[in-house]
Write a protein that binds this DNA or RNA. Structure first.
Length: 129
DNA sequence: CGCCTGACGAAAC
DNA sequence: GGTTTCGCCAGGC
């Protein structure tokens, strides 16, 4: 399981002083695993990385998502309520909602429609169901 | 170094 | 069940 390794790496590379190469990158990669037309939650991502309780760190990491080489589909990541809490951090505040709609995801009142059915569980990318 | 903040979440009241 | 508070860990001043 990659998640197992990821969890250990988190504390393994600590002494190296390269935290960014772990938590951040792990979050980015995981978010990139989110299939189009699907969404995920910060907590779910954090949990998959072993930092279940640190869901805020995930969202915080997203702040740097726009600084990463490859573009991270942060717009596919919402809070556990399916709410577009991070829309304020996009160039245009409505970019997030627009991107989601472009992928076929309905957004109403800054909230993902049928979020629970569109919810994508990280770590098990193989089971799209 | 210490205090406050933050794209969340879950327990406590 | 809604509102409030703590926890989580890193960043900025």
């Amino acid at each position: 399981m990659a998640k197992k390794q990821a969890t250990e790496k988190l504390k393994t590379v600590r002494p190296s002083g390269k935290m960014d190469e772990n938590f951040f990158s792990l979050v980015f990669e995981l978010v990139r695993q989110i299939p189009k037309g699907r969404v995920s939650s910060y907590g779910a991502i954090a949990a998959s990385l072993g930092t279940r309780s640190s869901a805020r760190m995930v969202g915080w990491a997203m702040n740097s998502s726009h600084r990463v080489k490859p573009s991270v589909p942060a717009h596919r990541v919402v809070n556990r309520n399916g709410m577009l809490t991070g829309k304020h951090h996009f160039d245009p505040p409505g970019k997030m909602e627009a991107l989601l709609k472009k992928e076929g995801i309905k957004v109403k009142n800054d909230q993902v429609v049928e979020f629970k059915k569109l919810f994508w569980d990280p770590g098990k990318e193989v089971g799209e169901g």
